[in-house]
């Protein structure tokens, strides 16, 4: 699992879904996009959208943080997108049995886990990406 912070809260996602981490750059605004979508960027010829996780999770982001980075992730069905986070902290071995479920499977935040006295939210990547691609009609 890779652990990152948004505001004061820490979250993690499976490391294997991460393709790369890059500095945040200017995005191109997309019409009719959900408010949590920053816009599109070019990743060596592939166009992908960046999600501002702070807005998505409804958290107060750290203001004007120069260390903001985009974690480029690939979901199980091959969709690539970027997650804008405040900073990447480290990697952690997390036993999935230690995760305490906080909501049902399909929710974007599936559980919480304690690592070194820190509480880390386990993000359900498939749900986030699914929401991004899923609800098609935005007439």
């Amino acid at each position: 699992m890779i652990v990152f912070a948004i505001g004061d809260q820490e979250y993690c996602i499976p490391i294997l879904s991460v393709r790369e981490i890059r500095g945040f750059e200017k995005t191109t605004a997309l019409p009719f996009a959900p408010h949590y979508v920053c816009g599109a960027i070019n990743l060596r010829g592939i166009i992908l959208t960046v999600i501002d996780l702070a807005i998505y999770l409804n958290i107060q982001p750290q203001a004007d943080n120069p260390r903001r980075v985009a974690i480029i992730v690939e979901s199980k069905n091959g969709v690539v997108c970027g997650l804008l986070v405040d900073r990447v902290i480290d990697m952690a071995d997390i036993d999935m049995n230690d995760v305490q479920a906080v909501s049902e499977e399909s929710s974007s935040l599936s559980g919480l886990v304690m690592v070194n006295d820190r509480m880390i939210g386990v993000l359900q990547l498939e749900t986030v990406v699914g929401e991004l691609v899923g609800d098609m009609v935005t007439e």
């Binding site: 019409p31 592939i46 690539v80 609800d135």
Partner: peptide, 10 residues
């Protein structure tokens, strides 16, 4: 765009 996102009208 649709490959990694969705269809955008217009």
């Amino acid at each position: 765009i649709e490959k990694n996102y969705r269809q955008i009208s217009g």
